[in-house]
């Protein structure tokens, strides 16, 4: 099952780079959805020996939530905001990609400082998780549209969740569910706020949101 985990982790990294490099917002949301699904399947491949129902339920919940429900929410927000055209990031694409590469390196650097926990599926999980977190932050920092900032937050959550997989056994189910619920509620409220901003400001570009300053 080692190579399946490697494949899924590579898929996660690719999804990140795709979001960083691509224009249309719809495509980005779909990429994040795929990333969610990949993460949903990851626990199955990481701990093949455990066939407990608890693991299946969590995986199913993750796939359902991250793959379909949250992207659905974001698509609805896009439809109301009637913005299809691509998003103009604050920095050019190649610089975005370049920074993305640097952050992957940074993630691996920090992971190198930390001793490898013995019973994790593969040594790749921690660096991938850290770099996904950093990429999520990068997306938030470099995007002009507040919707893509929400998207960046989602990538951040995915990164943290990949890290959570290492201790799938350790973390009791209730907490897992609580985390999922909170993330979902977070995205839901962000979606409603984005709608209000759209109605109030007539656009969801971050350039409008600067009149609270010293």
């Amino acid at each position: 099952m080692e190579h399946v985990t490697q494949l899924l982790l590579i898929l996660v990294i690719l999804a990140n780079l795709f979001v960083l490099g691509s224009h249309p917002l719809g495509a980005c949301i779909r990429a994040v959805a795929f990333q969610g699904i990949a993460l949903g399947l990851l626990p199955l491949s990481l701990h093949p020996e455990e066939r407990s129902i608890h693991l299946f339920v969590i995986a199913l919940g993750m796939v359902g939530l991250k793959g379909f429900v949250i992207p659905g929410l974001l698509f609805r927000a896009i439809r109301d905001a009637a913005i299809r055209k691509e998003q103009e990031p604050l920095i050019g694409f190649n610089t975005g990609l370049f920074l993305g590469a640097i952050l992957v390196g940074l993630g691996f650097g920090i992971a190198g400082k930390l001793p490898l926990p013995p019973h994790t599926g593969s040594s790749m999980v921690v660096p991938v998780a850290l770099s996904t977190v950093m990429m999520g932050l990068l997306v938030i920092v470099t995007r002009a549209k507040i919707l893509s900032q929400a998207l960046g937050y989602l990538i951040l959550e995915n990164g943290i969740y990949t890290f959570g997989l290492i201790l799938a056994a350790g973390l009791p189910g209730l907490i897992e569910m609580g985390v999922l619920l909170d993330i979902f509620a977070g995205i839901f409220i962000m979606g409603t706020v984005i709608e209000h901003i759209h109605r109030e400001f007539g656009s969801i570009s971050a350039h409008k949101l600067v009149n609270l300053r010293e």
């Binding site: 940074l106 400082k113 930390l114 938030i140 920092v141 470099t142 900032q149 971050a206 010293e214």
Partner: peptide
């Protein structure tokens, strides 16, 4: 210094991010 609070939320997050990375490299 007050210009640091300029209203762009992205840069606020950048402050946090840079501070955290600095802590990681300094204290880890």
């Amino acid at each position: 210094f007050r210009r640091l609070q300029h209203g762009k939320v992205q840069l606020y997050l950048l402050y946090m991010f840079v501070f955290m990375v600095a802590l990681l490299f300094w204290k880890l």
